[in-house]
Each structure stands twice: as C-alpha cells, then as structure tokens.
Design a protein around this nucleic acid. Sequence first.
DNA 1: ACACTGAATTAGGTTAGACTAAAATATTAT
DNA 2: ATAATATTTTAGTCTAACCTAATTCAGTGT
Lengths: 235, 235
Amino acid sequence: MLVSPNPQKTSVHATSESVDDYLKAILELGGSEEALVTTNALAERLGIRTPSVTGMLQKLSSERPTLVHYEKHRGVRLAPAGKRRAWELVRHHRLLERFLHDVLKYSWDEVHEEAERLEHFISERFEDRVAAILGDPEIDPHGHVIPHKYAQGMFRNEVELARWPLRTPATITSVSDRNAASLREIERLGLKPGVTVTIEDVNSSGSLCVRLPGQMDVVRMNKNLAGSIFVTATP
Amino acid sequence: MLVSPNPQKTSVHATSESVDDYLKAILELGGSEEALVTTNALAERLGIRTPSVTGMLQKLSSERPTLVHYEKHRGVRLAPAGKRRAWELVRHHRLLERFLHDVLKYSWDEVHEEAERLEHFISERFEDRVAAILGDPEIDPHGHVIPHKYAQGMFRNEVELARWPLRTPATITSVSDRNAASLREIERLGLKPGVTVTIEDVNSSGSLCVRLPGQMDVVRMNKNLAGSIFVTATP
DNA sequence: ACACTGAATTAGGTTAGACTAAAATATTAT
DNA sequence: ATAATATTTTAGTCTAACCTAATTCAGTGT
C-alpha cells in the first residue's frame, strides 16, 4: 500500500529513505561544529554521483519549512527540522543495534547492516518499546552514545587511534561499525570499548604496535584498522 | 545508501516494496484455488487505479524469470518465484505480529500496521532469530497460521461468521487484522480465536445475535464485524 | 446479431531520485 | 596575475510507479 508512505514518522516532514540518508550523512560529516558539508563528501559517503547530490540539495533546500540550509558552491548544513530527523535516525540505529545484539543475538559485525535498513521504518511506538525492554540503554554495541528521545545527541571528544601519540595510554571509547570485516578483526584482537591501550611503535607505512594491559605480547594492526578505533585520554 | 536496495532479500528476485504488495495481494485474493485475480480486484485492494495495475502486471510478467503469469483481459496468478516471495512476506508479517505482541507488548490492534511496513525489510537472519526466540510459533495473534520457512502456506477452511448457519456451534479460527477499530470491538466482546459461538438470530439488516458459552447474555454485532470473524465447525 | 455496460487497456503526463556529459566556478600553483 | 586543476552545477536522460482521459474489449440481454 504505497499511497502514503511511512505515515508513522515522528517528524513533521515526511522524509523518504533517500532524504533520511542525506540528513544522517550531513549530521555525521558536519560533526560537532556543524560545519558545511561539501557536495563531494556527501556523494562519496552516500555512494552516488555529485550531480545527484546537487539536485537533491537544491530540492531539499527549496522546501518550506526546510530540512537543510544549502549555499551553492559552499556546502550544506542541517536546519532544525533536519537535525531533529537526523538525530532520531541515529537513535533508531543505535537502539536497533543494541536490540539486535542483546535480544536477537546478532554478533557485533552483523548489527549495522540490519539497523541501517530498519532505522527508516520503525514507528515511534517501536522505538519506545525497544528502549523500554532494553532498560533505556546509554551505549550501543560499538560504544556509541544513544541519544535521548527528541534530544539532540552529542559528539564525543574522541580521536582515531591512528593519530594518538606514542606511549600515551588511551581508552577505547568506540569503534566504527561501518565495516564488518574490520569489526571481526577488532574483536579478535580484544579491542572492545573500555579497553585501555598504549601505542608502542608506528612504522613508516602507518602500522601500529599496540600494548594491551595484562597481556605480554603486543598487537599489530594496519593504519586502516587503527582508523576505525576511537579513543580518549585514560583518566 | 540506495545503490542496491534491499540486498538481503531471501528471494532471488529483488522485489521492491511495491512489487511485494502486488504479490501478497495476488496470493490473498487468489485464495487456495489460485484463481486468476482481476485488475479491478488488485486496484481495489492496493488502493490504486486500474491503469497502474495493468502497467505493473505488464512489466512484471515480461521479466524473466517471471514472478507472475498475466493474461490480458483475464487476470493474473503467481508464478513459482512470486509465490515464494508472497509466502515469505506472509511469514514475515505473522512472525512480526507475534513478536510485536509478545515481546514488545503491542496490543492486538496495533500489530498489523507495523508488521505491514516492516515485513518488506527484515532480513532472513532477523526472521530466523525472531522465530527462534518465540519458539517457532504456529499462530499469530489473530489466529492465522504462520507458514514454515521456505514453505508454501495453506489456506484454512474457514468462513465468515456472517455466513454461518443459525444455531450451529462454530469455533472462531481467526479474525481479520486489517481494521484496528473492529479488532478492539471484537476483543471487547471476548471473541478471540478458539472461542465457540452460536448464532441465535439474524435480523433483516444482517446484524447477528451471538451466544458465547458460559455467558448468559447474547452479544450483538453488525454485518461488517461478523464479516471479519472467521469460523469453522466445532468438532 | 447487436447494442449496452462494465472492465481493462492504451496513451500520455507527473514525481522522485538516480545517471552522464558538458559548462561554470573555485582553488592552487606558478 | 594567470594558468592548471579540482569541485560544483547545469542540461538533458532514464526508470519506477503512480495518475487521468480516452479507447478498446468482453460478456449480457434482447
């Protein structure tokens, strides 16, 4: 029944799956300072061509009330309504990951894909009930903070392990969920959020030697992997 | 990310939400004898206009391997691939209803809408895990049989209460889930699947007087309500 | 056999969201 | 300051799925 698609969406603006994806990408690429996001960056992130992005941004920004503010040749940022929907999607995604992991026994590397698909379609009731049976969880399986309902989330002060200083203890706060193979490798190495690590050495190609507490042997990882692990200073 | 939509679908044919809806409607309207379903009937069921249906049927039936067999001016029926996907959707729908009701504590009348939306998007893994935590349920909250995985379901020998003979005990096997208001009324009257009823009287406008076992007073219901309750002979 | 009626199809149009190729604008390097 | 390069936008297509208006077809009744 396609007459009125997704009639249950919380936000006022009926957003398509596609628009949802743009909004979430703008949120994530803009980061805490809500910087202008470029056409290129969006095209890259969404796996589509730049003219498609330009077209969509023109369309979105010409609708009133608008989801985004678009400045031709400069970039785009979220308007209030767009920010609301984007954070709602982030909440959906992270709640779903927690749910899939804890209730449906999905493994670490399986949750992202399913959550990415379902986040667009669950109703507010579904969101509420899942949160309730999980006891309003704060953190998803990869260490990301689950924003509160109707609330703007926040960006943590975390940085890629790849650019952390040598011999300075760091605590893993989260890992990127966007690559299942990386996640399996990270799990194998015991690098869950909460674990404290110290970089012993970096070689010319960006490979790291990392020491974990209570383990004799160091762990080796390539640049790419170290780029999907996020850390902060150990208190 | 819209590059390859619904890449997880079990069936070989990547079916859109819209095609899914056609397949399910053809299955349900065709019934156990898999009768040809008319353009009109489909348009009515899907809430769209007949030319849209003709166009879709032409498109679908020209694809190889085909999901449907379409005979111009006569009607359409499911081809094997279409039947597989349609039953898969029915399984998704009924499993989801059971899950929403039992785990997420949705009420009887709330499950249909959510299941109708999500049935298109859950992966095979989701289906399997939900079935597992529910203990492979046989029946959904409205009394419908949940088909087995990969299996063709079956149509029960049930008939609308509205056309059951007078003073002949009948057992409720299922109730239609397509109207939330009717469901609330049915629940209020205590007419759950499994309950045995006897029609005492029918008036000229089709209203029924129904007696429930162990209750003194009879229950009154209109024709419409009696059309969404399905019964079989009491053994 | 033929006209009538209802059902179905054809013809042509719309919108959303993608695409390619070409043009325009910005940025960087000399 | 200007040329070279990279980014972005414009112009024009395409597909999926819907729409309305007009036409054709099939079945029924005389």
